[in-house]
Design a protein around this nucleic acid. Structure first.
Lengths: 131, 131
DNA sequence: CGATATTGCGTGTATATACACGCTTTATGT
DNA sequence: ACATAAAGCGTGTATATACACGCAATATCG
């Protein structure tokens, strides 16, 4: 009656997301937002379309998620060279959140590696990337 | 700069969910709905609270997802012995969807195992359960 | 038996996510 | 240059998901 890979993935995803969300709570963002901020940082200023490709998210999803970060004053929207293009960049507050969150994020990474062991952690990474 | 386990999980989860959703499209339900139907089948009639525990989902989430299945006429709500309790059970249409979907689901399972190999598939299962 | 705690639900609110449309703004091709 | 295609976005709609509240029904305790 083998297990459904998709359900296993979704359950693990929910559980692990909760772990990260709780760890990041002190800085007021959840894992998805923290990750989005990091992706912005790596390429700012960046258009929403590019951000979508980097994160493997639909552009409309990115658009809405970024809007929330903007309301939280963690990012700012600027004009790209193009009149169509909207570019996103971090605010000082956003940079601080990334800085303060780094150790919190690292703590969960370490916690997971401690639970699984180094070898299994590497296997997990490889398997998830292969999917 | 190791990868974020959570993001790897979430990305894999989205990708794999898409695989299953596309495969199940002919029967008109997505993976989450198909899985919920299966969980109902295994214990019907079942209360929403119990269904939540089985699926590791919040009760309110189950409540809303079941409501959609009800609108699709795949399940029916009945009274538990208790006046508070609502029990869910499959409709004939719901049973047919499960029956027709079995081979579609199986196809994706096989496809994933073919891609990863048997050993890696077993490893993946074990790792996801350990998280 | 009456007060209190527990159980079971639904709803409000909020984020994450995708797809389909439709509107601008550029780019292209003849 | 003009018509057409392509790029970049926002919004509407829908599902998945969680948490906080509050209501009704049942169980418990003194």
């Amino acid at each position: 009656m083998s297990h459904c890979y998709c359900i296993l993935l979704r359950k693990a995803s929910r559980r692990v997301t909760t772990l990260y969300d709780e760890a990041l709570a002190p800085i007021g963002v959840n894992l998805a937002q923290f990750s989005l901020l990091r992706n912005i940082q790596r390429a700012e200023p960046i258009s929403l379309t590019d951000l979508g490709q980097r994160t493997e998210l639909d552009r409309s999803t990115v658009s809405r998620n970024v809007k929330i970060l903007e309301k939280m004053e963690l990012v700012a929207m600027t004009n790209g060279q193009d009149q169509r293009e909207t570019a996103v960049e971090l605010s000082d507050k956003g940079r601080r959140v990334l800085k303060d969150g780094a150790s919190l994020w690292d703590g969960v990474q370490t916690q997971i590696e401690a639970k699984l062991g180094n070898e299994a952690s590497a296997q997990l990474t490889a398997l998830l990337q292969a999917l």
